[in-house]
Protein backbone atom coordinates (compact mmCIF):
# COMPACT_ATOMS: atom_id res chain seq x y z
CA UNK A 1 0.00 0.00 0.00
CA UNK A 2 1.38 3.37 -0.90
CA UNK A 3 2.39 5.70 1.90
CA UNK A 4 0.91 9.19 1.87
CA UNK A 5 2.98 12.35 1.96
CA UNK A 6 3.18 13.60 5.53
CA UNK A 7 3.20 17.20 4.37
CA UNK A 8 0.38 17.62 1.83
CA UNK A 9 -1.49 14.51 2.90
CA UNK A 10 -2.65 14.09 -0.69
CA UNK A 11 -0.01 12.71 -2.99
CA UNK A 12 1.89 9.49 -2.68
CA UNK A 13 5.16 9.69 -0.71
CA UNK A 14 8.26 9.06 -2.79
CA UNK A 15 10.99 9.11 -0.19
CA UNK A 16 11.63 8.67 3.49
CA UNK A 17 13.66 11.51 4.99
CA UNK A 18 16.62 10.20 6.96
CA UNK A 19 16.85 13.30 9.14
CA UNK A 20 13.35 13.11 10.59
CA UNK A 21 11.77 9.87 9.36
CA UNK A 22 8.96 11.69 7.54
CA UNK A 23 7.71 10.51 4.16
CA UNK A 24 7.27 13.11 1.42
CA UNK A 25 5.97 13.31 -2.14
CA UNK A 26 8.21 14.76 -4.82
CA UNK A 27 6.73 18.24 -4.79
CA UNK A 28 6.78 18.62 -1.02
CA UNK A 29 10.31 17.18 -0.93
CA UNK A 30 11.61 19.71 -3.46
CA UNK A 31 9.98 22.49 -1.52
CA UNK A 32 11.28 21.31 1.88
CA UNK A 33 14.80 20.67 0.55
CA UNK A 34 15.10 24.10 -1.03
CA UNK A 35 13.45 25.81 1.92
CA UNK A 36 15.91 24.17 4.33
CA UNK A 37 18.91 25.35 2.35
CA UNK A 38 17.33 28.80 2.32
CA UNK A 39 16.82 28.72 6.09
CA UNK A 40 20.44 27.68 6.55
CA UNK A 41 21.61 30.56 4.36
CA UNK A 42 19.45 33.04 6.24
CA UNK A 43 20.17 31.74 9.74
CA UNK A 44 23.93 31.61 9.24
CA UNK A 45 23.90 34.89 7.27
CA UNK A 46 26.09 33.37 4.60
CA UNK A 47 25.68 36.11 2.00
CA UNK A 48 24.97 39.82 1.66
CA UNK A 49 22.96 41.35 -1.19
CA UNK A 50 25.11 42.46 -4.08
CA UNK A 51 27.89 39.94 -3.44
CA UNK A 52 29.53 37.94 -6.18
CA UNK A 53 29.53 34.30 -5.15
CA UNK A 54 31.68 31.62 -6.74
CA UNK A 55 30.24 28.12 -6.72
CA UNK A 56 32.90 25.43 -6.66
CA UNK A 57 31.65 23.18 -9.45
CA UNK A 58 33.10 19.76 -10.09
CA UNK A 59 30.29 18.31 -12.16
CA UNK A 60 29.49 15.84 -9.38
CA UNK A 61 26.16 15.50 -7.59
CA UNK A 62 26.78 17.85 -4.69
CA UNK A 63 28.03 20.83 -6.64
CA UNK A 64 25.43 20.30 -9.38
CA UNK A 65 22.63 20.36 -6.81
CA UNK A 66 24.28 23.33 -5.09
CA UNK A 67 24.45 25.32 -8.33
CA UNK A 68 20.85 24.47 -9.13
CA UNK A 69 19.50 25.34 -5.67
CA UNK A 70 21.56 28.54 -5.41
CA UNK A 71 20.17 29.67 -8.74
CA UNK A 72 16.58 28.83 -7.71
CA UNK A 73 16.84 30.50 -4.30
CA UNK A 74 18.63 33.57 -5.62
CA UNK A 75 15.69 34.17 -7.91
CA UNK A 76 12.93 33.07 -5.57
CA UNK A 77 14.07 35.18 -2.65
CA UNK A 78 15.84 38.02 -4.44
CA UNK A 79 19.15 37.41 -2.74
CA UNK A 80 20.68 39.83 -5.20
CA UNK A 81 23.75 37.65 -5.67
CA UNK A 82 25.87 37.37 -8.75
CA UNK A 83 26.64 33.65 -9.16
CA UNK A 84 29.64 32.27 -11.02
CA UNK A 85 30.69 28.64 -11.47
CA UNK A 86 34.35 27.98 -10.77
CA UNK A 87 35.86 24.68 -11.81
CA UNK A 88 39.28 23.30 -11.24
CA UNK A 89 40.90 21.26 -13.99
CA UNK A 90 43.37 18.98 -12.25
CA UNK A 91 44.50 17.55 -15.56
CA UNK A 92 43.32 13.97 -15.09
CA UNK A 93 42.64 12.45 -18.49
CA UNK A 94 39.41 10.52 -18.72
CA UNK A 95 38.12 11.73 -15.37
CA UNK A 96 38.24 15.48 -15.25
CA UNK A 97 37.73 15.95 -19.02
CA UNK A 98 34.40 14.20 -18.77
CA UNK A 99 33.25 15.92 -15.62
CA UNK A 100 34.22 19.29 -17.05
CA UNK A 101 31.94 18.56 -19.97
CA UNK A 102 29.16 18.16 -17.41
CA UNK A 103 30.04 21.50 -15.83
CA UNK A 104 29.97 23.14 -19.27
CA UNK A 105 26.48 21.77 -19.86
CA UNK A 106 25.45 22.98 -16.40
CA UNK A 107 26.72 26.42 -17.33
CA UNK A 108 24.31 26.50 -20.25
CA UNK A 109 21.43 24.87 -18.39
CA UNK A 110 21.64 27.34 -15.51
CA UNK A 111 22.86 30.24 -17.60
CA UNK A 112 25.69 31.04 -15.22
CA UNK A 113 29.18 32.24 -16.12
CA UNK A 114 31.93 29.61 -15.78
CA UNK A 115 35.62 29.97 -15.04
CA UNK A 116 37.96 27.00 -15.32
CA UNK A 117 41.33 27.19 -13.57
CA UNK A 118 43.79 24.47 -14.37
CA UNK A 119 46.68 23.04 -12.38
CA UNK A 120 48.78 23.26 -15.47
CA UNK A 121 48.16 26.98 -15.82
CA UNK A 122 48.64 27.68 -12.09
CA UNK A 123 51.44 25.31 -11.17
CA UNK A 124 52.87 24.15 -14.46
CA UNK A 125 51.96 20.54 -13.59
CA UNK A 126 48.94 18.41 -14.47
CA UNK A 127 47.90 15.63 -12.08
CA UNK A 128 48.79 13.12 -14.80
CA UNK A 129 52.33 14.50 -14.82
CA UNK A 130 52.49 14.54 -11.02
CA UNK A 131 51.39 10.91 -10.82
CA UNK A 132 54.11 10.05 -13.29
CA UNK A 133 56.67 11.47 -10.91
CA UNK A 134 55.31 10.53 -7.48
CA UNK A 135 53.37 7.36 -8.26
CA UNK A 136 49.97 6.49 -6.83
CA UNK A 137 50.80 6.66 -3.17
CA UNK A 138 50.76 10.33 -2.25
CA UNK A 139 49.12 11.85 -5.27
CA UNK A 140 45.98 12.71 -3.30
CA UNK A 141 48.04 14.96 -1.04
CA UNK A 142 49.20 16.97 -4.05
CA UNK A 143 45.75 17.09 -5.55
CA UNK A 144 44.04 18.15 -2.32
CA UNK A 145 46.52 20.86 -1.44
CA UNK A 146 46.60 22.23 -4.97
CA UNK A 147 42.83 22.20 -5.38
CA UNK A 148 42.22 24.24 -2.28
CA UNK A 149 44.51 26.97 -3.53
CA UNK A 150 43.33 26.71 -7.11
CA UNK A 151 39.78 27.54 -6.12
CA UNK A 152 41.07 30.56 -4.20
CA UNK A 153 43.20 31.73 -7.09
CA UNK A 154 40.29 31.36 -9.50
CA UNK A 155 38.09 33.28 -7.08
CA UNK A 156 40.64 36.08 -6.84
CA UNK A 157 40.93 36.34 -10.62
CA UNK A 158 37.15 36.72 -10.82
CA UNK A 159 37.06 39.04 -7.80
CA UNK A 160 34.36 37.02 -6.08
CA UNK A 161 33.47 37.87 -2.49
CA UNK A 162 32.75 34.33 -1.35
CA UNK A 163 33.06 30.75 -2.49
CA UNK A 164 30.46 28.16 -1.67
CA UNK A 165 31.21 24.46 -1.92
CA UNK A 166 28.99 21.40 -2.14
CA UNK A 167 30.04 19.80 1.17
CA UNK A 168 26.99 18.04 2.54
CA UNK A 169 26.02 16.79 6.00
CA UNK A 170 27.63 13.39 5.35
CA UNK A 171 30.92 15.05 4.40
CA UNK A 172 30.94 17.16 7.56
CA UNK A 173 30.04 14.21 9.81
CA UNK A 174 32.72 12.09 8.17
CA UNK A 175 35.31 14.79 8.76
CA UNK A 176 34.35 14.94 12.44
CA UNK A 177 34.90 11.18 12.71
CA UNK A 178 38.19 11.39 10.80
CA UNK A 179 39.54 14.07 13.09
CA UNK A 180 38.61 12.08 16.18
CA UNK A 181 40.31 8.99 14.76
CA UNK A 182 43.39 11.03 14.00
CA UNK A 183 43.31 12.94 17.29
CA UNK A 184 43.48 16.19 15.33
CA UNK A 185 41.95 18.51 17.84
CA UNK A 186 42.60 21.73 15.90
CA UNK A 187 40.74 20.51 12.83
CA UNK A 188 38.09 18.86 14.97
CA UNK A 189 37.25 22.26 16.33
CA UNK A 190 37.21 23.98 12.93
CA UNK A 191 35.59 21.36 10.74
CA UNK A 192 31.96 21.94 11.70
CA UNK A 193 32.06 25.69 11.02
CA UNK A 194 29.62 26.51 8.24
CA UNK A 195 31.81 29.32 6.95
CA UNK A 196 35.38 30.47 7.28
CA UNK A 197 36.11 34.10 7.86
CA UNK A 198 38.56 35.73 5.51
CA UNK A 199 41.85 34.37 6.74
CA UNK A 200 44.03 36.95 5.08
CA UNK A 201 45.39 37.91 1.70
CA UNK A 202 44.72 35.46 -1.05
CA UNK A 203 42.09 33.51 0.82
CA UNK A 204 38.43 33.97 -0.05
CA UNK A 205 35.84 33.20 2.66
CA UNK A 206 34.12 29.89 2.08
CA UNK A 207 30.79 28.46 3.11
CA UNK A 208 28.78 25.25 2.86
CA UNK A 209 25.09 25.95 2.20
CA UNK A 210 24.40 22.18 1.99
CA UNK A 211 25.97 21.54 5.41
CA UNK A 212 22.70 20.19 6.83
CA UNK A 213 21.55 18.38 3.69
CA UNK A 214 21.85 14.60 3.66
CA UNK A 215 23.70 12.96 0.80
CA UNK A 216 20.71 10.69 0.28
CA UNK A 217 18.45 13.69 -0.27
CA UNK A 218 20.96 15.40 -2.55
CA UNK A 219 21.14 12.31 -4.75
CA UNK A 220 17.36 11.93 -4.80
CA UNK A 221 16.91 15.63 -5.50
CA UNK A 222 19.24 15.33 -8.48
CA UNK A 223 17.51 12.12 -9.59
CA UNK A 224 13.94 13.38 -9.34
CA UNK A 225 14.86 16.73 -10.91
CA UNK A 226 16.81 14.86 -13.60
CA UNK A 227 19.83 17.05 -13.03
CA UNK A 228 22.80 16.35 -15.22
CA UNK A 229 25.67 15.18 -13.05
CA UNK A 230 28.80 13.13 -13.42
CA UNK A 231 29.54 10.18 -11.17
CA UNK A 232 32.75 8.30 -11.52
CA UNK A 233 35.38 7.54 -8.98
CA UNK A 234 38.58 9.50 -9.47
CA UNK A 235 40.90 7.18 -11.35
CA UNK A 236 43.74 7.88 -8.94
CA UNK A 237 42.48 5.90 -5.97
CA UNK A 238 41.03 7.71 -2.96
CA UNK A 239 42.40 7.87 0.55
CA UNK A 240 42.00 4.47 2.18
CA UNK A 241 41.71 5.73 5.73
CA UNK A 242 38.86 8.04 4.73
CA UNK A 243 37.24 5.00 3.18
CA UNK A 244 37.00 3.38 6.61
CA UNK A 245 35.36 6.45 8.08
CA UNK A 246 32.89 6.66 5.20
CA UNK A 247 31.88 3.02 5.49
CA UNK A 248 31.47 3.43 9.24
CA UNK A 249 29.30 6.51 8.73
CA UNK A 250 27.07 4.76 6.21
CA UNK A 251 26.70 1.79 8.57
CA UNK A 252 25.82 4.17 11.42
CA UNK A 253 23.25 5.84 9.20
CA UNK A 254 21.63 2.49 8.55
CA UNK A 255 21.43 1.78 12.29
CA UNK A 256 20.07 5.21 13.19
CA UNK A 257 19.42 7.56 10.25
CA UNK A 258 19.63 10.74 12.32
CA UNK A 259 23.24 9.88 13.24
CA UNK A 260 24.71 12.16 10.61
CA UNK A 261 23.04 15.20 12.14
CA UNK A 262 23.82 13.88 15.61
CA UNK A 263 27.53 13.76 14.79
CA UNK A 264 27.44 17.31 13.47
CA UNK A 265 25.64 18.37 16.65
CA UNK A 266 28.43 16.71 18.64
CA UNK A 267 31.07 18.48 16.59
CA UNK A 268 29.38 21.83 17.06
CA UNK A 269 29.31 21.36 20.81
CA UNK A 270 32.79 20.07 21.53
CA UNK A 271 35.00 22.32 23.49
CA UNK A 272 38.71 22.03 23.83
CA UNK A 273 40.51 22.10 27.13
CA UNK A 274 42.50 25.23 27.79
CA UNK A 275 46.21 24.84 27.38
CA UNK A 276 45.99 22.36 24.51
CA UNK A 277 48.46 23.58 21.91
CA UNK A 278 46.95 24.86 18.69
CA UNK A 279 48.96 25.65 15.59
CA UNK A 280 49.31 29.36 14.90
CA UNK A 281 48.12 30.42 11.46
CA UNK A 282 50.51 32.68 9.61
CA UNK A 283 51.12 33.32 5.94
CA UNK A 284 53.46 31.72 3.45
CA UNK A 285 56.46 33.92 2.89
CA UNK A 286 56.61 32.98 -0.76
CA UNK A 287 53.02 33.24 -2.00
CA UNK A 288 51.17 34.88 0.88
CA UNK A 289 48.70 32.03 1.32
CA UNK A 290 47.72 30.99 4.87
CA UNK A 291 50.19 28.60 6.42
CA UNK A 292 51.28 27.50 9.86
CA UNK A 293 54.83 27.16 8.56
CA UNK A 294 57.22 29.55 6.83
CA UNK A 295 56.20 28.04 3.50
CA UNK A 296 52.73 26.83 2.64
CA UNK A 297 52.21 23.21 1.78
CA UNK A 298 51.52 24.04 -1.82
CA UNK A 299 54.84 25.88 -2.30
CA UNK A 300 56.78 23.07 -0.62
CA UNK A 301 55.10 20.42 -2.77
CA UNK A 302 55.79 22.46 -5.88
CA UNK A 303 59.42 22.99 -4.93
CA UNK A 304 59.73 19.25 -4.41
CA UNK A 305 58.26 18.52 -7.84
CA UNK A 306 60.41 21.09 -9.56
CA UNK A 307 63.61 19.90 -7.91
CA UNK A 308 62.73 16.31 -8.66
CA UNK A 309 62.46 15.58 -4.93
CA UNK A 310 58.76 14.80 -4.44
CA UNK A 311 59.27 13.61 -0.88
CA UNK A 312 60.02 17.17 0.21
CA UNK A 313 56.39 17.99 0.80
CA UNK A 314 55.44 14.65 2.30
CA UNK A 315 56.11 14.21 5.96
CA UNK A 316 57.92 16.72 8.11
CA UNK A 317 60.85 18.57 6.61
CA UNK A 318 60.30 22.00 8.14
CA UNK A 319 64.01 22.34 8.78
CA UNK A 320 64.59 22.63 5.07
CA UNK A 321 62.18 25.53 4.57
CA UNK A 322 64.84 28.19 5.12
CA UNK A 323 67.03 26.62 2.47
CA UNK A 324 64.20 26.55 -0.02
CA UNK A 325 63.32 30.16 0.69
CA UNK A 326 66.85 31.34 0.12
CA UNK A 327 67.16 29.05 -2.90
CA UNK A 328 70.16 27.28 -1.42
CA UNK A 329 71.04 23.86 -2.72
CA UNK A 330 70.42 20.93 -0.39
CA UNK A 331 73.28 18.80 0.86
CA UNK A 332 73.85 15.46 -0.75
CA UNK A 333 72.61 13.60 2.30
CA UNK A 334 69.41 15.60 2.37
CA UNK A 335 68.85 15.01 -1.31
CA UNK A 336 69.47 11.31 -0.99
CA UNK A 337 66.86 11.04 1.71
CA UNK A 338 64.29 12.84 -0.37
CA UNK A 339 64.98 11.21 -3.71
CA UNK A 340 64.12 7.73 -2.64
CA UNK A 341 60.75 6.86 -4.02
CA UNK A 342 58.00 7.86 -1.68
CA UNK A 343 56.79 4.73 -0.06
CA UNK A 344 54.68 4.16 3.00
Amino acid sequence: MPVQCSSCGERRAMLKRPKTGHSLCKECFFWAFEEEVHQTIVAAQLFKPGETVGIGASGGKDSTVLAHVMKVLNERYNYGLKLILISVDEGITGYRDDSLETVKRNQQQYDLPLKIVSYEELYGWTMDAIVKQVGLKNNCTFCGVFRRQALDRGALMLKVDKICTGHNADDVAETVLMNVLRGDIARLRRCTAISTASEGEGVVPRCKPLKYAYEKEIVLYAYFKKLDYFSTECIYSPNAYRGYARTFLKDLESVRPSTIMDIIHSGENLSVREGVKMPVQGTCSRCGYISSQALCKSCVLLEGLNRGLPKLGIGKHHRLHDKILTKQPLTEAEERKLRKSVDF
Binding site: S6, S7, H22, E36, T40, I194, Y212, M261, H265, N269
Partner: peptide
Amino acid sequence: LDTNVVEKASAFQATLISELLSQRRA
Protein backbone atom coordinates in the same frame (compact mmCIF):
# COMPACT_ATOMS: atom_id res chain seq x y z
CA LEU B 1 21.62 21.00 28.54
CA ASP B 2 22.97 21.50 25.05
CA THR B 3 19.60 22.29 23.50
CA ASN B 4 19.05 25.88 24.52
CA VAL B 5 21.48 27.06 21.87
CA VAL B 6 21.72 30.67 20.91
CA GLU B 7 23.18 30.01 17.49
CA LYS B 8 20.60 30.12 14.75
CA ALA B 9 22.45 27.87 12.35
CA SER B 10 23.05 24.57 14.09
CA ALA B 11 22.35 20.90 13.52
CA PHE B 12 19.75 21.06 16.28
CA GLN B 13 17.89 23.95 14.64
CA ALA B 14 18.24 22.42 11.19
CA THR B 15 16.55 19.24 12.40
CA LEU B 16 13.73 21.21 14.01
CA ILE B 17 13.23 23.08 10.74
CA SER B 18 13.17 19.83 8.79
CA GLU B 19 10.56 18.42 11.16
CA LEU B 20 8.47 21.51 10.75
CA LEU B 21 8.72 21.49 6.99
CA SER B 22 7.87 17.80 6.72
CA GLN B 23 4.62 18.04 8.66
CA ARG B 24 1.13 18.75 7.44
CA ARG B 25 1.14 22.25 6.08
CA ALA B 26 -2.16 22.88 7.82
